[in-house]
Design a protein around this nucleic acid. Sequence first.
DNA 1: CGCGTGCTTGAACATTATCAAACAGTGTGG
DNA 2: CCACACTGTTTGATAATGTTCAAGCACGCG
Lengths: 254, 254
Amino acid sequence: MMSVPFRVATNDPSSQTTRIGEERNLAARPSYLRPVPTASSNDVVAAELERIGTALPYARGALVIEEGNSAEYVFKVTRGALRSVRLLADGRRYITSFLLPDDFFGLADTTVYSQTVEAIADAIVIRYSRRSFEGLLERDARAGRHFLGLVCGELSAAQDRLLLLGRKSALERMAAFLLAMVDHKTNTSTPPGQIEIELPMNRSDVADYLGLTVETVSRLLSHLRSRRIIDLPTTNHVIFLDREALEDICAGNV
Amino acid sequence: MMSVPFRVATNDPSSQTTRIGEERNLAARPSYLRPVPTASSNDVVAAELERIGTALPYARGALVIEEGNSAEYVFKVTRGALRSVRLLADGRRYITSFLLPDDFFGLADTTVYSQTVEAIADAIVIRYSRRSFEGLLERDARAGRHFLGLVCGELSAAQDRLLLLGRKSALERMAAFLLAMVDHKTNTSTPPGQIEIELPMNRSDVADYLGLTVETVSRLLSHLRSRRIIDLPTTNHVIFLDREALEDICAGNV
DNA sequence: CGCGTGCTTGAACATTATCAAACAGTGTGG
DNA sequence: CCACACTGTTTGATAATGTTCAAGCACGCG
């Protein structure tokens, strides 16, 4: 019922094998040598992007972009996980989104970054200069449409989260979050009825994502465990014992 | 400090003079007769749009699009005001945005509308068939970039509202809302210190926009009035007596 | 004039935050 | 290798913010 509150992902499986600590410039051939586009829109855009991007590694905790800095680059996650953060003057924090492989970020900020992005696990991101990125959009109408589609998906996800924050209870938010997390892991074809995931973020991050406090998040998870809806063998390892119950909670059937 | 939580507006002053009850098809000349683009990007896109749009009037309370219906059209507000609504099964409601002149809507929904849009005042909207709209994007890279910019702006506004809903108090939300409303009215060049606006929406709409209840909204407005920060000569007429105080509240300085 | 809808105000209540303390896991240094 | 410190998590008690329920008010309309 709920759509996934994470940034939409593209479907190109260009799995980078770059290791942490290594840097690789993907801009190899000059533009006049690139092949004439023949494949599907997404493939062509992906190829164009690869030409102008640079893969960068970030260790857990590292700062990728900082709110207020000049928005010179656009990024795409290849590996790992990051968080996109907005801060208030008095220290209150809100996590706009968790960024996972194939998610873009920095796209919507045309002059200055409106949020800080930090790695919550060792990560690899591909960096594109905004100039070359805009050049791509200028030349290729398909690229524009492609990114329009991506940003529209993000907008739709953001609006789902507005409803979540504006009108749902703490327990409903938690259930929605867990379901979104597990649905994002559709690739892991585990047998139904015994699905499990490893959360890449800590309680504090979950709290700041759901607009709650760490204590409430902890209590809600304990509550779900006591109801045998989930299990928590370790802090970040969640086993889904009763997915339907979560969906009921999500739908408002306490 | 807060960015305006309304949809971004384009800058083309193509003020329609169509009256309520009238319908006008703007697609006059066939595409091969349209002039070669020479003006700025926005102007060209606006001209293209005018060619494929149909102006439609909606009376106060009328339904423009309904959540779940096939997303056949894209719209742009010309006159009046509308609300974009998401509903939960049990009746809880959230207002994603208020739509004012020059705002687009329906853009982000590619297959099915994800929200209901209703007129909260008599309104005129221009309707574009998605097919012709997509055709425009296909042909003209500038159109794609133009709308990418628009949707990015909306995304950024939505993220501001996520922070607002996730981390701000009721009073802070109210102050932010009032400031956003008054800033949206920058065209009315009233003398500083005595700015006033007429709210197009009722208390219930404000509540569903800020994630509060009608009673809380009412109490907050009374509170601000008793503090001589605003005045309310009639229910929807707000006079700003102390804008700085509102900005302080917004910034977290109670 | 009386009804209806939307707004305001009050009192009791619920949910979630805050404050506080204990606990678990991990890495460090003796 | 163990004790210690550090950070993140859990749990409990208390408090605050905002909701719910209830009643009265104001404005517009038949």
